[in-house]
């Protein structure tokens, strides 16, 4: 039986980029607005889940050739590594710093080292969620 899903595939090719952009926006909206690494990672992984739903595992792996278990491990390493960065300057573990900088285009911007920690959290969430979804969808 041939199933016609042209509309779903065409919509998905556009909507995935909207979801990815929204995930990155949530990730950067940081600790002053709703957002952060965990929620941004969840939205990013929902975009990957949508891709896996509409296409199939082989096609998506040809386009996104990452091992998501390695991405999760890299994220956990990055989060712990930023904690060690505070120890190097004689501060307690996981101490974070921030400052105001004058960037060329953006103007005065607040840069915080917690961004690296949040990036590690986001990588971990994306890797773990996609790994769980792929594991429980294996053929029984």
């Amino acid at each position: 039986m041939k199933i016609n899903d042209v509309i779903l595939r065409t919509v998905t090719k556009i909507v995935v980029f909207i979801i990815l952009t929204f995930g990155v926006e949530l990730f950067f909206s940081g600790h002053n607005d709703p957002g952060g690494g965990f929620i941004g990672g969840l939205v990013l992984s929902s975009a990957f889940v949508l891709l896996y739903l509409v296409f199939d595992i082989e096609t998506v792996h040809r386009g996104v050739p990452f091992d998501f278990k390695k991405i999760a491990a890299f994220g956990a390493f990055l989060a712990v590594f930023t904690g060690i960065g505070g120890v190097l300057f004689g501060e307690p573990f996981l101490t974070q710093a921030f400052g105001l900088f004058d960037l060329p285009i953006l103007g005065p911007t607040e840069l915080a080292s917690v961004l690296l920690f949040e990036a590690g959290v986001a990588f971990t969430v994306v890797g773990v969620v996609v790994t769980i979804i792929l594991s429980i969808s294996k053929d029984v």
């Binding site: 199933i3 949508l50 739903l53 509409v54 199939d56 595992i57 082989e58 792929l134 969808s137």
Partner: peptide
């Protein structure tokens, strides 16, 4: 959106995430 797509695909085909292109 994603939940509705997943439910509809489960009803239509019985499998949600396919292993290879059918």
């Amino acid at each position: 959106f994603i939940g509705t797509i997943a439910f509809s695909k489960y009803i239509e085909r019985g499998v949600i995430i396919e292993r290879k292109r059918s």
